[in-house]
């Protein structure tokens, strides 16, 4: 790796480090209270979801409307591991719980990725419209499955029914700002590295002209599945983080409605833009907190937003542009020349 040949990246890295320190300090001194920290964490989680969905929909040109299903699969897996397997409670010291949490996150990603693979393989040959329906259906199936799975847990003295229609509750609060920040940065970095490589180029080629890509020697099914699996893996990771900040999960959270919210973030931000997804995710999360008082009306506005977006600004906010520090040095130099 040549980390220091890229000045902009260096500045960005420094900037992020500074940001991290500032936020942590502000939090410790109570300037930023817990409520705001929670929103910041949610923003980052949603950004991971938006960027991973963008990889599937925006860069590879597929049309998955079931991202929330992967998210919630990851969430449940992680939740089950921390509550049932490791039996972490609010009493457990954070230092001891952290490695188990990381394990849970990795497991969540792995399972979601596996599910993505199993679904993707047969289904990704289908055209847009069918894929949309199948992915919506997937979300519903997940909801049904998680509605169905329930365990009886021995809580020392009494037996509790966990899972099923009641959802999963009592998940320990393990998603700290640090953990989420690090996972967020890693996720963005990995996805960005994927995009700016021959694999990413193959995916974009598939989006642009699938037939031509196929005839230029690219195994299109392999790459569609690859993008889908990577996207679903990160959705699962985000789900694990989400479960451990809102501390509960319910099967309905993996449904169509939630998937559409992520879809909005992707299309609002711009279909081929990582930066756009991040901005849109941050923005939408913040806005929906603001709009919380008006409750359901918020969802109505989302619907209108989607329609108007498609009619007036289909390229989204950023279109295909990126923040400079995300684009590799060589690429950026090239664009500057022209």
């Amino acid at each position: 790796m040549k980390p220091f040949s890229n000045k902009a990246l260096l500045f960005a890295a420094l900037g992020l480090a500074v940001l991290y320190v500032v936020i942590t300090v502000l939090h410790k001194t109570e300037v930023l209270n817990d409520y705001i920290m929670r929103i910041i964490i949610l923003m980052m989680i949603n950004a991971i979801l938006a960027v991973s969905l963008n990889l599937i929909n925006g860069f590879t040109g597929l049309f998955s409307v079931g991202h929330a299903g992967f998210m919630i699969t990851g969430g449940y897996v992680a939740g089950f591991i921390t509550t049932l397997v490791f039996k972490i409670t609010s009493e457990t010291p954070y230092a001891a719980a952290l490695p188990m949490f990381i394990l849970a996150i990795l497991a969540a990603g792995a399972v979601s990725g596996l599910v993505g693979f199993l679904i993707g393989l047969p289904v990704l040959r289908l055209s847009d419209d069918y894929l949309a329906i199948v992915t919506i259906g997937f979300g519903e199936i997940i909801r049904v499955i998680f509605n169905f799975i329930s365990f009886k847990v021995d809580r020392g003295g009494w037996v509790q029914d966990v899972g099923g229609p009641r959802g999963l509750s009592g998940i320990p609060l393990l998603s700290s700002f640090t953990v989420v920040f690090v996972v967020f940065l890693l996720s963005i970095l990995i996805i960005r590295n994927f995009i700016y490589s021959r694999h990413g180029r193959a995916c974009i080629a598939i989006r642009e002209n699938e037939v031509a890509a196929h005839l230029m020697g690219i195994n299109i099914t392999k790459y569609k599945v690859m993008a889908f699996v990577i996207g679903s893996t990160f959705a699962g990771i985000a789900g694990a983080l989400l479960a451990h900040i809102i501390q509960m999960l319910h099967p309905t959270m993996g449904g169509f409605m939630k998937s559409v919210e992520y879809l909005i973030m992707v299309y609002l931000g711009g279909m081929g833009s990582i930066s756009g997804s991040i901005i849109a995710a941050f923005g939408l999360t913040a806005v929906s907190e603001f709009l919380r008082p008006i409750g359901e009306l918020r969802m109505v506005l989302y619907g209108v937003l989607l329609v108007i977006l498609m009619l007036k600004m289909p390229a989204g906010i950023m279109g295909r542009k990126e923040f400079p520090f995300l684009v590799p040095l060589k690429e950026r130099q090239k664009h500057v020349k022209n």
Binding site: N193, R201, I204, E208, N209, M216, G217, K334
Partner: peptide, 28 residues
């Protein structure tokens, strides 16, 4: 059938795809 939004250079580079050996890990 070009990849219209990709640059000319990228269009040509992408055709070299299967002759390249970089795996996922080394790319990431």
């Amino acid at each position: 059938r070009l990849f219209s939004t990709m640059t000319v250079l990228e269009n040509i580079m992408v055709a070299h795809h299967y002759r390249m050996k970089s795996g996922l890990l080394s790319s990431l």
